[in-house]
Amino acid sequence: MRMVIFGLTVTSSWGNGHATLWRGLIRALAQLGWGISFFERDTPYYARARDLDRLDGGEVVIYPDWKGVRHAAANAIQQADVVIVTSYCADAVEASRLAQDSCQGLKVFYDLDTAVTLSRIEQGDLPPYFDPEGLRDFDLVLSYTGGPAVEALKTTLGARHILPLYGHVDPNHHRPSQPRAEFAGDLSYLGTYAADRQQGVEKLLLAPAVQMPDRRFVIGGAQYPVEFPWRDNIFFVRHLPPADHPAFFCSSRLTLNVTREAMARKGWCPSGRLFEAAACGAAIISDDWPGLDSFFEPGSEILLAHCTDDVVAALDLSDGELEALRRRARERVLDEHTSAHRATELDRILNDAAGSATEPMREAI
């Protein structure tokens, strides 16, 4: 089976959550027999921070502009059983139109940013990865967000057949690791700076740092502004490639998850960082949002923080209590949320979607 993907990036994890997800999913899909080509526009900010030079399980086509790649894209689409266009793809509109004209197989849109998409539409702003026709011409729409967002995509963008496909983790790359001194801390937080996460970061990390000056706090990520309110007991690690994530997670007693405002408001949208941290054996404390308990059991597999005092209390838990939390979270993610689980799910979804229109593409796994 041939799959062609037009996405944001797979070669650089700098400042985005797409690349790591695609790497794990493509690797797992290849093990199910899929041949995959990923088209990515060459952009200076990703080119300067590439942390992958060979895609395990697929090929990457990096192109300078749409005009230069259109002929190759058309050939790939004509030979594909499935074409997937994603949110934030630099040439999503052009790729979508070409797929509608040339694809003989399934035409799929995967919104990995559903909460942001819906938030912008609510403000009267159609994201640039959609043309005015929205999603009505796609055979299938996949959403990174579940719950009420699924129906909202149908209502606002005319999607006919839509299913959630949640985040995941590749345990071959995210697993327990030896701690490293430069990442050591009582509480760590890994995430790209975002203005709509800053209130949560201030409440759940900066405020605890003020109350606990003898504790060490560590932030890892990219795009943090010079005016960020650093303190003497808060240490910064600039953008970390995925290879360093396990050591980062395993070097602190507790790691924090803060969800972007649009994602938290819609709910049913687990960050890939949650699954990564759990797979690495980290003890996790997270802000709360609707649907979180469908992915991890609060109090048993993950701690919830509604205020500063919740974080302070969590940092006072014993090593034994945190170790039990780590073990149960890792067991849950390995049982339900790996890239292999999502690949098998996607393989079934694609076979079912193809079978509803024509004959089944092949026997379901």
Score class of each variant (00 low, 15 high):
211 Q>T: 06
249 F>Q: 02
204 L>V: 06
227 E>Y: 02
194 A>Q: 09
149 A>H: 05
139 D>P: 11
254 L>P: 11
231 R>A: 10
240 L>A: 12
158 G>A: 12
126 L>F: 05
143 S>L: 10
162 I>H: 05
213 P>K: 12
232 D>L: 09
132 P>L: 03
209 A>C: 10
177 S>N: 08
167 G>S: 15
147 G>R: 06
239 H>S: 00
204 L>M: 10
128 P>S: 15
246 P>T: 08
132 P>Q: 06
231 R>I: 03
136 R>Y: 08
128 P>N: 13
181 A>G: 00
201 V>G: 04
253 R>N: 09
125 D>Y: 08
228 F>P: 02
255 T>E: 10
214 D>I: 08
171 P>R: 14
168 H>P: 02
155 T>P: 01
181 A>S: 14
132 P>T: 00
238 R>A: 14
227 E>A: 09
205 L>R: 09
181 A>Y: 04
215 R>H: 15
120 R>K: 14
168 H>K: 10
247 A>R: 08
173 H>K: 02
129 Y>R: 05
195 A>G: 06
185 G>I: 06
157 L>K: 00
155 T>C: 07
228 F>Y: 15
144 Y>S: 14
238 R>D: 15
254 L>Y: 07
127 P>S: 09
221 G>A: 04
212 M>E: 13
187 L>M: 05
230 W>F: 12
251 S>P: 02
203 K>G: 00
230 W>V: 07
154 K>P: 00
242 P>N: 06
129 Y>S: 02
186 D>G: 06
173 H>F: 12
224 Y>M: 03
133 E>Y: 04
145 T>E: 08
168 H>T: 03
225 P>H: 13
126 L>I: 04
235 F>R: 11
188 S>N: 12
207 A>C: 03
204 L>Q: 06
219 I>Y: 11
126 L>M: 14
175 R>I: 02
219 I>Q: 11
232 D>Y: 09
249 F>P: 03
211 Q>H: 13
256 L>A: 08
119 S>N: 15
185 G>F: 08
202 E>Q: 14
168 H>M: 14
154 K>F: 00
162 I>W: 05
135 L>Y: 04
172 N>M: 12
208 P>H: 02
247 A>L: 02
218 V>F: 07
137 D>H: 12
161 H>N: 12
207 A>T: 11
128 P>L: 12
224 Y>K: 03
219 I>G: 09
132 P>S: 04
242 P>W: 01
142 L>M: 10
213 P>G: 10
232 D>T: 14
249 F>N: 03
